[in-house]
Simulated assay, not measured.
Amino acid sequence: MVEMIRTHSAIVLRPTPFEEGGLVVSFLTEHGERLVGLARGAKKPTAKWVSSFEPLGLVKVGFFGREQAEIKRVTRCELQHSPMTLGHLESSLVVACLADVFDRVAREGVEDDRLFRLLSACARCLKEDPSRSLAVLAYAEHWMLHLMGLLPHPRLCGRCGGGEAPLVLFTQDHGWCCAACTPVDPREALPPGTREHLKLLRTLPAAQAPDPGGSEAARAVTRILRDRLRRELGGLKSYEVLEKLVVPC
């Protein structure tokens, strides 16, 4: 089988140390496909690309190898944009969470450019305003569930199809359920404003993502969506670190 060179615009996801100062790096290409490459000597101080493999960095990367090879050789990697902000712990933790999630969802041989557009927008927002990193994370979680087909539209109740009554419950079987058809203890019901917060998540761009801790409804929605995503993907160590070091919404 013929070996070939492929060049992509891509976002760095997970760099993993390899023998002799190398790295095995997963990338999300501009087409939304996950590719993995071996960068030999990338961790050596003299390496020309020593700073090119930061998570969520936008790079121009070249791969050499057979088309069907699981791991190709990285021949070049030029950093074009990085969301990392020195000294901002919260933003760095969110970068790790986003890289972890997208590394789990993206697939080799499967293209979905919506993944690239979403992650690229989030990375740029983190760079422009790292103080809003938790809002960016909640925004990404909402849209990731949507792209995975796991988040019903909140416009209509999943049980009765109504669109006027307040939402009071989220279930695995029916999605968002409203007060008109779903009896629920008021102490356990979703807070007022839940539907409105979900509308903001769906209609605003990443740069204007609503504050996940700005209201009781926002906090409830953030918890529900984050729990759903973590159950679906499982084993997200980056989220465990985030919970230990950052006050939850």
Results as ranks from 00 to 15, higher is better:
Leu200Arg: 08
Val36Ala: 13
Asp211Gln: 03
Pro83Leu: 07
Thr16Leu: 13
Ala47Thr: 08
Glu78His: 10
His142Thr: 13
Glu30Ser: 15
Gln208Cys: 11
Asp227Asn: 14
Arg231Glu: 14
Phe64Thr: 03
Gly41Met: 09
Glu196Pro: 00
Ala207Gln: 13
Lys237Tyr: 04
Val184His: 04
Cys157Lys: 02
Arg114Tyr: 07
Lys60Trp: 11
Cys177Thr: 14
Gly87Arg: 05
Phe170Lys: 09
Pro166Glu: 09
Asp185Tyr: 09
Ser92Ala: 15
Ala123Glu: 02
Gly32Lys: 02
Ser52Tyr: 05
Arg231Ser: 10
Phe64Val: 06
Leu56Ala: 03
Ala123Cys: 07
Arg107Pro: 01
Thr171Glu: 04
Arg230Ile: 12
Leu38Lys: 11
Ala165Asp: 12
Val184Tyr: 03
Leu156Ile: 04
Cys157Tyr: 04
Gly22Pro: 09
Ala217Ile: 00
Met144Val: 10
Leu137Thr: 01
Ser26His: 05
Ala106Val: 04
Phe27Gly: 04
Ile11Ser: 06
Leu79Val: 12
Arg223Gln: 15
Gly37Asn: 00
Ala69Asn: 07
Glu67Asn: 09
Cys181Met: 10
Lys44Gln: 14
Lys199Cys: 06
Leu236Met: 14
Lys199Phe: 13
Pro15Ala: 09
Leu169Arg: 15
Ser215Cys: 05
Glu232Tyr: 13
Arg195Gly: 15
Gly87Asn: 05
Leu200Lys: 06
Ala209Phe: 05
Lys43Gly: 07
Met148Asp: 05
Ser82Pro: 08
Glu108Met: 09
Gly163Asn: 06
Asp103Met: 01
Val25Ile: 13
Val110Gly: 04
His174Gly: 07
Val61Leu: 04
Ser91Asn: 02
Pro183Met: 02
Trp176Cys: 05
Lys72Met: 07
Val246Trp: 00
Ala69Ser: 14
Val95Cys: 05
Lys72Pro: 02
Glu240Arg: 09
His31Tyr: 13
Trp49Asn: 12
Lys244Gln: 02
Gly65Met: 01
Gly149Ile: 10
Cys160Thr: 10
